[in-house]
Design a binder for these strands. Structure first.
Length: 472
RNA sequence: GGUCCCAUCGUCUAGUGGCCUAGGGCACCACCCUCUCAAGGUGGAGACACGGGUUCGAACCCCGUUGGGACUACCA
């Protein structure tokens, strides 16, 4: 059997790292087994989706390195891949279910349902649907319809015990009567997720449904609908949710946890993917660096942990510094360009490229390139308060002397500059730290910068001397 | 309330009855290196939620308790 897995996000908000992690696992599973991966957009609730969100989902996944064989943008034999465009399939399925008496019209209004729910709760009974419309006679239904009462369509849940063999949770059972009849078509005629997912998974030939475990309870319902439609349910794997640092499920109040946000902060896709891959899954006891290829090669759904994980930003940061260091200078320069431009700088390409070895191991994120390199690409480098303090404490005439000496120095390269700076410092009775810091402050405007002599070499003699004189 | 899921260092995890005086990564602490900041190196502290069983033997199996979470919608 050829594996067909899918990722089916609801584009109601941004794709947060918990969602993608689930998608990543589904993708890795499909790729590991040489199967197909399908992207489907779950937008049955039109009020909650925006076109922007759909585009955002696609872009985020692509950026991360996840690809799909069938989807809304690339098409495929089982399309369309947006639920909002599959209404005909849902209508046909509903008719079949209705004709088989696996579904029935329900005339209860939301208000009535709410009241009965409260009443049941008050009596200490479970609050689910009470089945009032379940066994109405055809005449009864006709009469109610004749009155023009709007009706939703409910699925008639089998009354025996239901069970799901889950690839990560194991066998999960629901005793008879615990799963109530549920609405599959709203009274306005639009299908509900519970129906759409089942129909789509069936029609798209999905063999493995890998999704968040908040959907575990809907698995037996999805499976029941698929069986009623004459199909065989796919295998299910419900992976745990990803929590925020406080241990609560990821949500808006955790701030920017979307893929897009991490991208904007300067994280590398390879680092995010690595971090996500290790959240709830591990290759073995030791492995901490996992590339896309490693993940595909080693992914095993049976090794997915069944308990929820917190997203660890510090580890992401550490992974990111690691991956930044792995990048070639050209690659890194190209990636930094966007951040420097966004900060209003217009870096000279060759200078930028030459600066990479200096900053590579000093960047946690690509965005860090801005404060580190501003002095090279802007002459507006008024010393910050700390730097101003250091300059003020420099011995009388020290910086002017440095300016003079550097103005005559030959050749203008790091090694010679280092020698000269050392000489100047010791002549002034200063050690390297004390001797270099005022210069660094004057030239970069900050007490923190890439190594000084190398920085000066790149800056050039003229700009260096000019800046020294400006503060001297 | 009911049903279901989950429970190893702060955190991510290894662990599927003896290999565990519980291993690794991040974070933390100390030291080394050092022109700032990093990076790097060395070392250190740090966990099986609790209580009962089962067994010659339990982090691993069973039961209970406690604590988290999900679902219980004409949301997905």
């Amino acid at each position: 059997m050829t594996v067909r897995a899918r990722f089916a996000p609801a584009p109601s908000g941004s794709l947060h790292v918990g969602n993608v992690r689930t998608g990543l696992f589904s993708w890795a599973f499909a790729r590991h087994h040489g199967g197909a991966f399908v992207l489907r957009i779950e937008d049955t609730d039109a009020s909650r989706v925006s076109e922007e969100a759909v585009r955002g989902v696609i872009e985020s996944l692509r950026w991360l390195g996840i690809d799909w064989d069938e989807g809304p943008d690339v098409g495929g034999p089982h399309g369309p891949y947006r639920q909002s465009q599959r209404m005909e399939d849902y209508r046909e399925a509903t008719e079949r279910l209705l004709s088989q008496a696996d579904a029935y019209p329900c005339f209860c209004t939301e208000e009535e349902l709410e009241e009965r729910r409260k009443a049941a709760l008050a009596r200490g009974e479970p609050p689910g649907y009470d089945g009032r419309c379940r066994d109405r006679t055809p005449q009864d239904r006709a009469a109610l319809e004749a009155q023009g009462l709007p009706a939703a369509i409910r699925f008639r849940m089998p009354e025996d015990e239901q069970s799901v063999h889950d690839l990560v949770k194991g066998d999960v059972r629901w005793a008879a009567g615990h799963l109530r009849d549920f609405v599959i078509v709203r009274s306005d005629g639009t299908p509900v997720f519970l129906l759409a997912v089942a129909v789509d998974d069936l029609l798209m030939g999905i063999t493995h449904v890998i999704r968040g475990d908040d959907l575990l309870a809907s698995a037996p319902r999805n499976a029941a609908v698929i069986r009623a439609l004459g199909g065989a349910p796919p295998a299910y794997a419900h992976v745990p949710q990803v929590n925020g640092p406080d241990g609560k499920p990821l949500s808006k109040r955790h701030g920017s946890t979307s893929v897009e946000a991490f991208r904007e902060q300067g994280y590398l896709p390879e680092a995010l993917m690595n971090a996500l891959a290790l959240l709830g899954w591990s290759k073995d006891a030791e492995t901490t660096f996992v590339s896309k290829e490693d993940l595909v090669e080693a992914f095993d759904i049976a090794r997915v942990s069944s308990n929820p994980a917190r997203f660890d930003t510090q580890k992401l940061e550490w992974l990111n510094t690691h991956y930044v260091q792995q990048l070639s200078d050209d690659d890194l320069a190209a990636r930094c360009l966007h951040f420097l431009s966004a900060a209003g700088l217009s870096p000279d390409p060759s200078l930028l490229r030459q600066a990479m070895p200096l900053v590579k191991e000093r960047m946690k994120t690509l965005a860090d390139s801005v404060p580190l390199l501003r002095f090279l690409f802007s002459d507006d480098i008024a010393p910050d308060p700390k730097a101003a303090g250091v300059i003020a404490k420099a011995p009388e005439g020290y910086l002017a002397g440095v300016a003079d000496a550097l103005g005559r120095l030959e050749p203008w390269e790091a090694e010679a500059i280092t020698g000269e700076l050392d000489r100047l410092a010791s002549d002034a009775g200063l050690n390297r730290t004390k001797g270099f810091q005022p210069i660094r402050s004057a030239v970069t405007g900050s007490t923190v910068s890439p190594p000084l002599p190398e920085s000066l070499e790149l800056l050039g003699r003229e700009r260096t001397v000019l800046r020294l004189r400006a503060v001297a």
